[in-house]
Design a protein around this nucleic acid. Structure first.
Length: 513
RNA sequence: GCUCCUGUCGUCUAAUGGUUUAGGACACCUGACUUUCUAUCAGGAAAUGCGAGUUCGAUUCUCGUCGGGAGUGCCA
């Protein structure tokens, strides 16, 4: 039995998209379940698109998500180096092998000539529009040019690419774990470039060579790779590695929240939702993105959410830890059609994780969003506030918005409701209540409530005449936790201070208008 | 254009050739609880794209059709 080895092979061309994170997650889960190895390989063969910092970002993102590979770039292992830019020799040898056994050929066509060819074919209106079995003999390559001219061109340093010579009249059958048999006719396949003019391999070549060299047993990747998998099978054959070919599994795409097409980074900006795990900074504002982390998401919630985008355990359980996911996960249960990104569901997951969190731990998580003033109130106080608010919070920054009155004066009062609730006779009465509360020796929710009840009985007041006023005075808003719970957490002194400021304001507001 | 993938509530999905009034979750609506907002609980509305065929019976299998997606680069 072959060792179970999977890999995540991103390109360092920018921030790691949430779709990539899900691919990594599924690989991680399977490796864990199968007691296998999860490898990280950096596919940096496109020097034009290389972005500095992207590799670090990828590693940080995987780390934040808690789905780090155990072998690969930055992690060590027996199959390195794990950056493709450092494996050029291997690719050179491999491509030479293909040239030697007649499965690849040199092509000297310039980009302009290729454009012209495509344009010509398109105008001709036929179904063939690329460099392939039907057109290769019309082009400038080692199949059409005399051997001595080819040798001369190579010797002269004229730029060239090396293309795969796709065989004619064959049917390639890809056995996809998720989709079953997928068939391709080689006559419809193009002669893909394997080696670029700059001497670096394309994805196709490097990927196959590396997966083979790194003894990858299962290739789990996005559906966008399915159409080129025929070429990959052809490559395994050309190398004589077909017996060791990994199993393929193509994951459904993640689609836009609404509208057409797959999720893109632009959707994040347009809709104000995160589509990256971590923020990505850029000088250009259009290239800077806010991540799930900075949006106030818990990594566990993001993972839970992502796992369910295209996969389902078949039970009614919705909340899964990483270990539970690894236990329950299987490729057979991965869906086949695209999954729409649903931000509401992501927020729901986050709320579930926040609610389940211990108050002290939650307070730690919330700290980055709080003011210096709030932090100075101490961890216990913070934890108590978190405990009161956590049921009405979806993402961490919600705490900041909803908790300010616990840490300082009320920022803004709900004037509309103040006018509705504050009557001319209120001042005297509530001053009296304030004084009653001020004299309490123990100040907790129960005693405060009892005292307020005494006050209401004395003046024959109903809940509706008292509670909204208290809430307004304490929080400035009609929303929030129970007033007595708020009082207990705030403590007597702060409650009195809030009352004084509020009654003053209420008077002024109702007098002038 | 060509190639490949795909089509169950608005969304993510479950299920099975008949045991299904097609199940769950998010979102939505109603009610209960509560001083409010949440949370919670109880309800509600909501789907097998369409057309043939196979079959005693199809949402499930086949074909067609229409729709959605991806690929079609000296990007990955």
């Amino acid at each position: 039995m072959k060792d179970f080895r999977v890999r995540f092979a991103p390109s360092p061309t920018g921030a790691l998209h949430i779709g990539g994170v899900r691919t990594a997650l599924y690989n991680y889960l399977l490796a864990k379940k199968m007691n296998g190895t999860f490898v990280l390989r950096i596919e940096d063969t496109d020097q034009k698109r290389y972005v500095k910092g992207a590799e670090d970002y990828i590693i940080q993102a995987l780390e934040w998500c808690g789905i780090m590979p155990s072998e690969g770039q930055g992690l060590g292992g027996d199959y390195g180096p794990y950056r493709q830019s450092e494996r050029r020799e291997l690719y050179q040898q491999s491509i030479q092998q293909l040239i030697d056994n007649g499965n690849a050929y040199y092509a000297f066509d310039t980009p302009e000539e290729l454009d012209a060819m495509r344009k010509r074919l398109e105008e001709a209106g036929g179904s063939v529009r690329n460099y392939c079995i039907f057109t290769r003999m019309d082009m400038k390559n080692s199949l059409t040019l005399p051997a001595d001219e080819v040798a001369k061109k190579l010797a002269s340093g004229e730029p060239y690419t090396i293309r795969l010579k796709v065989p004619a009249d064959q049917t390639v059958v890809v056995n996809d774990v998720i989709r079953g048999e997928v068939k391709f006719e080689t006559n419809t396949l193009d002669d893909k470039v394997m080696m670029k003019g700059d001497g670096l391999p394309t994805y196709h070549l490097a990927n196959i060579v590396d997966d083979h060299a790194m003894k990858i047993s299962h290739v789990i990747r996005g559906e966008e790779w399915l159409p080129s998998t025929a070429h990959h099978v052809l490559l395994y054959r050309a190398f004589g590695w077909e017996d060791e070919m990994p199993q393929f599994a193509h994951l459904p795409l993640i689609l836009k929240p609404n509208g057409k097409g797959k999720l893109s980074k632009r959707d994040g900006q347009k809709l104000g939702i995160p589509v990256f795990p971590l923020s990505w900074d850029s000088d250009k504002p259009e290239d800077a993105f806010t991540g799930f982390k900075e949006f106030g998401f818990e990594p566990k919630a993001v993972i839970n959410f992502l796992a369910f985008l295209g996969w389902n355990p078949g039970t009614e359980q919705e909340i899964f830890s990483l270990d539970e996911l690894a236990e329950a996960f299987s490729l057979e249960k991965v869906g086949v059609s695209g999954a729409r990104f649903d931000f509401d569901k992501a927020k729901w997951y986050n709320q579930e994780y926040i609610k389940a969190m211990d108050n002290t731990a939650l307070a730690e998580k919330v700290k980055p969003w709080l003011s210096e003033e709030a932090l100075q109130k101490g961890d216990d106080y913070l934890a108590a506030v978190c405990g009161l608010l956590k049921e009405r919070v979806e993402v961490l920054p919600d705490f900041k918005e909803q908790s300010s009155y616990f840490f300082g004066p009320v920022q803004a009062y709900d004037d509309k409701n103040v006018k509705k609730r504050w009557k001319p006779e209120n001042l005297a009465r509530f001053e009296e209540l304030k004084n009653m509360l001020a004299e309490l020796s123990t100040f907790d929710a129960a005693t405060a409530e009892a005292e307020v009840a005494r006050f209401m009985a004395k003046h024959e007041l109903g809940n509706g005449q008292v509670f909204p006023v208290l809430r307004l005075a304490l929080a400035g808003t009609m929303k929030g936790p129970g007033v007595f719970e708020v009082m207990e957490v705030m403590g007597k002194e702060k409650v009195i201070m809030h009352f004084e400021a509020a009654f003053d304001y209420f008077e002024k507001l109702t007098k002038v208008s």
